[in-house]
Design a protein around this nucleic acid. Structure first.
Lengths: 243, 243
DNA sequence: TATGATAGTGTTGTTTATACACTATCAGAG
DNA sequence: CTCTGATAGTGTATAAACAACACTATCATA
């Protein structure tokens, strides 16, 4: 609940309030590799350190709206997948004051991600998750590690991977994402079967020419209603636990 | 991150702050049935409605510490399983002011739960989850529904069920909990095998006499280190999603 | 026309899940 | 004393899912 579990009516002056921010861990795929957006801090504390983008919530917006606003400010991208990750609120995680951070995960499509963040900018950058900065500001290493772990585990039993792909893609590109995020090689044949049987994809007549046999492109079938859930694979060691 | 993603140093007066509370959904087993603890409100708003216990965080305690404090205030119980559920923060969810609520789930052992909450008390009560009050205060119906759904899904791939049982129990009591929470009958033979093979239980020489053949009691093996994770079953329709 | 690269299918053995029949041990009724 | 019902626990046949890997197909280019 809130407020007066005891007998007294609420007195707003009785409680000091922490600051509340929303941090958004933004993932995208660049050259088939998973990247995350970080910003470099310009002031004390953690000056010069890289940090997960975020900011204060406004009093009239929901947490998710705040996350979407933050996301758009950083990347200019709207209409992405967004999910609440966890709320971090240890005292002392920010030396200036008590800050409660509600962390979100965002997945940005590969074809939309170039829009706003240029490679030349020195204070906002996409980092490959396999080669992150040594140290991040605040407790952001912990947040980021948890975000990656959540992404991994959810990938296996949701259609989350499609959020990272462009509108049209080949099945082997999809397999590549799975391999990227899960960090292991998958069998081509079994992958084909599993995806095809899931009925998750819609065949298009678009074909991409390349070195070998032309590649048929597919699109994620969004119209399915009340369908069986897609489960790529169950892995007991990928259980989402609290950080 | 926090604070000044823009160029300006932080000015504490620039932002109005929401109130932050911690709500704890406390589950226990009474007569083999899953119950949840609710408190009845005595003041506006939602006077007379039942609500999930909770309260403001102190400025010097972590979120989890606040949840433990709240839990102890309500039940007098320490040393229980506690897990962060989700953070609810829509504007208008509390008519008095902007409140961000970090919700937690707590599992209280069956043998410890009688301690503090008496059945006669009119404003604090254990409610069976199968017969909850029609309406709850604030958005607490949503919070409770999500808590139950999370409990169901986690039961299947964690050892969470043991947190609800007393020190010693029979395998068929454990099966009963699974049936309670999952809401379906399980095969006796298959359940035995699965639990025994998991090596999760330690045989005791305690036996309980009853109507039929004496019942051997078991205890949860806490000493296992780096062992294989226990997965009771994978069910694709029990995926934990945001509320 | 050979080669390599991509696309896609078949086959088979192993593991896991499920359904359900079966045996075992005890208390109390008749 | 033995029958019945209640609890405890095991065996087993079948089906479904998974993993490994061999195989075929189509195209560009050397």
């Amino acid at each position: 609940m809130e407020v007066e579990t005891s007998q007294h009516a609420y007195d707003p002056t009785r409680y000091e309030r922490p600051a509340v921010t929303v941090d958004v861990v933004i993932f995208t795929l660049i050259n088939q590799e998973l990247h995350v957006l970080l910003v470099q801090r310009r002031h004390w504390p953690f000056e010069g350190f890289w940090a997960i983008p975020g900011g204060f919530i406004n009093m009239d917006e929901s947490l998710e709206a705040a996350a979407r606003r933050e996301l758009e400010e950083e990347t200019g991208v709207r209409d992405v997948y967004l999910e609440q990750l966890y709320t971090f609120g240890d005292p002392g995680r920010d030396p200036r004051m008590r800050v409660i951070s509600v962390a979100y995960i965002a997945l940005v499509r590969a074809d939309a991600q170039k829009i706003s963040v240029s490679d030349e900018s020195t204070d906002v950058r996409w980092w490959p998750v396999r080669a992150l900065p040594d140290q991040l500001a605040f407790d952001h290493e912990q947040i980021l590690a948890y975000a990656i772990s959540r992404l991994r585990s959810k990938l296996e039993y949701t259609t989350l991977a499609f959020q990272l792909l462009p509108e049209l893609f080949s099945i082997l590109e999809l397999k590549h994402i799975y391999e990227q995020i899960l960090g292991e090689k998958l069998d081509k044949g079994n992958f084909y079967r599993k995806i095809k049987e899931s009925n998750l994809l819609e065949e298009t007549n678009v074909v991409r020419e390349g070195r070998g046999r032309p590649t048929r492109l597919w699109r994620f079938r969004r119209d399915r209603t009340a369908e069986k859930q897609f489960v790529f694979r169950w892995r007991e060691d990928r259980i989402d636990r609290n950080p």
